[in-house]
Design a protein around this nucleic acid. Structure first.
Length: 306
DNA sequence: CGCATTTCCTGGTAGC
DNA sequence: TGCTACCAGGAAATGC
C-alpha cells in the first residue's frame, strides 16, 4: 500500500537492516527475552538446512543476554537444568545467532505469511517469538558457544563500528592490507562490522571518498575522515531507530526515521545536498552505489615512475 | 590466503 | 489483464 509515501524513489523495497536497524531490534528484544527459558522451538515453512540448524537444542536453555556484533544478533544461552545443582551455576550453553538478512523480522505477534521459526518461552505474555523472513536470506541458528565454523563472516568479523575497539589505528591497519575498492571492503565486514550498502554510500559521501578508491590508497586524513563518518552516520541513525525504506519496522511496529536524513542513497539524479551536482548511481561489486562526482572525485591514476 | 564470481530467494514492477 | 523478464541485496559457496 501507499506506493508513494513521500519517500525518495529508491526502486528498492526491502528492509536492508544494517547496524542501526539491528541495534534497534536488539534494544527491544533485551528486556523481553533476557532471563527467559525456551520451552519449544520449531521450524515452520522452511526447508531443512544450515540457516535454521540446531533449533532442537533450544528447549531447556535460558537466554542470558541479547548482544550484537555488526549485523548479527548473538543470544548466549545457559542450561539451568544440570542435574543436582538447582541453584548452582548454570552449565555451559549454546548460542543463538540471528541474522535478519534482507527481510527478516523478529515479532511478538504471528505474521500472516512467511513464518520461519516459532519459539515458545516460559513466563508472562507475550511468550512466543516469531521469526518471519520473506526472502529467506536471514538466519536463525543455534551453535555451541563461539563455534562459528558454519558462519565464516562472523568468524572473520571486524570490530563493531560502534565499539571502542573500532579505532582509527585498527581501521588504518585493515585498510592498508587490502587492494579492494573501499566500498567493497566495507561491505565485506572484515575491516569494520555493521556497515551495509546504505551506510557505506552515506559514509563515503560524508568523507568525500570515491567508493572505487583502493582501500590501501586512502591516506591518513581520508582514513580518519571515513572512520569518523562511519561512527557519526550510524550513531545518528540509531538515535532515529534506523532507516525504513519500505518493510523494516521496529519490534513494536514503528518505522525508523533516518530515511529523511539520507544524502545520496536513493537520491540518484537529484542534486547533491552539499554542492548541487547531480548524484550518480553506478554498479560496484554487483551493488547499487550512489556517488557525488564532485564531492567524491575519482582517484587520479597513479603515475608510473621509471 | 585474497579476491572475484555465482548462488540463494521472492515481491514488485517494467514492458509488451 | 496477464504474462515474462528482471531487479534488489548480505552472506555463503565456489572458483581461481
Amino acid at each position: 500500500m501507499a506506493p508513494s509515501s513521500g519517500a525518495p524513489c529508491t526502486k528498492g523495497r526491502s528492509a536492508i537492516p544494517e547496524l542501526p536497524e539491528v541495534e534497534t531490534v536488539r534494544r527491544a528484544l533485551g528486556p523481553w527475552l533476557c532471563g527467559r527459558t525456551v520451552i519449544a522451538a520449531e521450524r515452520v515453512e522452511a526447508p531443512p538446512g544450515p540457516k535454521y540448524a540446531g533449533l532442537e537444542r533450544l528447549p531447556g536453555q535460558r537466554i542470558e543476554a541479547v548482544l550484537r556484533r555488526g549485523k548479527f544478533l548473538l543470544l548466549p544461552l545457559s542450561r539451568a537444568d544440570r542435574s543436582g545443582s538447582a541453584a548452582g551455576a548454570p552449565g555451559p550453553g549454546d548460542e543463538l545467532i540471528v541474522h535478519l538478512g534482507m527481510t527478516g523480522v523478529v515479532r511478538r505477534t504471528p505474521p500472516d505469511a512467511h513464518l520461519r521459526v516459532r519459539v515458545r518461552l516460559a513466563g508472562p505474555e507475550p511468550s512466543t517469538l516469531y521469526f518471519q523472513d520473506v526472502r529467506r536470506f536471514g538466519r536463525f541458528t543455534v551453535v555451541p558457544s563461539g563455534d562459528y565454523r558454519t558462519l565464516p563472516t562472523l568468524a572473520a568479523l571486524g570490530p563493531d563500528a560502534l565499539a571502542s575497539e573500532f579505532t582509527v589505528a585498527a581501521f588504518a591497519r585493515a585498510l592498508r592490507r587490502s587492494a579492494m575498492a573501499i566500498k567493497t571492503l566495507l561491505l565485506s565486514q572484515r575491516a569494520v562490522a555493521g556497515v551495509g550498502n546504505i551506510y557505506a554510500d552515506e559514509a563515503l559521501w560524508r568523507a568525500g571518498i570515491h567508493p572505487e578508491r583502493p582501500a590501501r590508497q586512502l591516506d591518513r586524513a581520508r582514513v580518519a575522515a571515513l572512520h569518523q563518518a562511519i561512527g557519526a552516520v550510524l550513531e545518528e541513525s540509531v538515535a532515529l531507530q534506523g532507516t525504513t525504506l519500505h518493510d523494516y519496522r521496529t519490534v513494536d511496529g514503528e518505522v525508523g526515521s533516518f530515511l529523511e536524513r539520507l544524502a545520496v542513497y536513493g537520491h540518484a539524479w537529484e542534486p547533491c545536498p552539499r554542492c548541487g551536482t547531480t548524484i550518480e548511481k553506478v554498479v560496484l561489486g554487483q551493488r547499487g552505489t550512489h556517488v557525488c562526482p564532485r564531492c567524491q572525485p575519482r582517484p587520479r591514476r597513479r603515475r608510473h615512475r621509471a
